[in-house]
Write a protein that binds this DNA or RNA. Sequence first.
DNA 1: AGTATTCGATACTCTTCGGTATCCGAGAGA
DNA 2: TCTCTCGGATACCGAAGAGTATCGAATACT
Lengths: 227, 227
Amino acid sequence: MSTAPTTMQSMPRRTTGPSRNEKKALTRERLLDAAAKVFAQKGFNGASLDDVADEAGLTKGAVYSNFDSKEDLVTTLIEERVDRPELGIADIVGGDESTEKQAASAGDLYMARSDDKRERESYLLGYEFSLHLARNPDLVPRFNQRYRNLRAATADLMEANATEAGFRLPMPKEELATILMALGTGLMLDRLIDPDSVSPDLFGKFLALLFASAQDQPTGKESKTKH
Amino acid sequence: MSTAPTTMQSMPRRTTGPSRNEKKALTRERLLDAAAKVFAQKGFNGASLDDVADEAGLTKGAVYSNFDSKEDLVTTLIEERVDRPELGIADIVGGDESTEKQAASAGDLYMARSDDKRERESYLLGYEFSLHLARNPDLVPRFNQRYRNLRAATADLMEANATEAGFRLPMPKEELATILMALGTGLMLDRLIDPDSVSPDLFGKFLALLFASAQDQPTGKESKTKH
DNA sequence: AGTATTCGATACTCTTCGGTATCCGAGAGA
DNA sequence: TCTCTCGGATACCGAAGAGTATCGAATACT
């Protein structure tokens, strides 16, 4: 990467400092990190650009040099930082364990995140975004594709697992995925407000129970509505 | 309510105008209504007290005459307006229908609320509150009692129903109540963001399925952990 | 009736914040 | 090495908002 064609080896330090673009990209990241933290703590409207800049150890000038406006910073943050972290769950699934145990592990892993300060902020930020989206429907389409992808991935994962284990999902996979993701969201929100209100293994327990009972109907004897 | 002991029936109007306290209580309610609407639409930080006053057809003077500060208005709103509406669900349950159908109806009723503009605002407000609580842990205890009461009521309701129908709940009632309430929260949030992402009857369908499968194990053969 | 209260309107203050204009210094190009 | 460019700092502006002071009118008290 270092572009030092001439003989400059004599000078021990500052041979070729980080290029301008590198520096700019770096401050951009620092700003996004700071924004994630500050917005999570104070909310979009509650946090000022000075807050963000301070958190990043920079000034508002840096902000406006990298983003058009506060709204631009917000939407960029949505696009670059949100709804990625979930994906890690897929790593757990697919082992040799029983479906039940895998489900429990996935649930536990998901809930365990609320303990980590950084993850906690990330979820708070997610809810802040959700509210932002609910109030700005025009932003939804851009964000929605990712949500649907994630849901589809979850759906496929569950189905693959069920097929391998020799049972049918009790309802269409997309619907089940919608349910489980929503449940995760709701439980996490409860837990963010009051960790004592939701035991960390509750999600996993419920998932295990759900899949266990699904396995009791291998052929898929859903009562009536298949319509 | 009119306290007119003396013979005053002759004068058709303005016999005894609304007492000062009545008027004050009225404007207080108007302010709270307006605050609920405006806060739901713009968020706590996004909405100004002038916005609230305007919505109520009053001025900021009225606000400060009835509340100590914006924060006081917010917390009052939390205490007096939130987490009451859910209770209506209990009305549905307890009929002659099968447990399955009751569950489906309850779910449908719950989700149908997101269609009504006013209810929608009420839920948005709820999420706004949730975030507010997550960021202000000191406020949680006051609010939490209500949440736990509601959860306990839901839990008892489910258990009573299960007992009557002759089956055991698949997990401790409080945990199940926690799960179902969180699921409702999560689904509603999804639906507030994008109504197309969650079909309105999904909640009911899932609840029906869940209780149907619970009924298949009348004696309660939970696999292992009862601990 | 006459006086004291108080609710809510009006007018104002002080701070904060989003955004802009300008400036400085370090890296790029010659 | 000299200049040009541009990222980020500093200084500033106008708007908006939380909170305060005060006022007027209607109600309660005596």
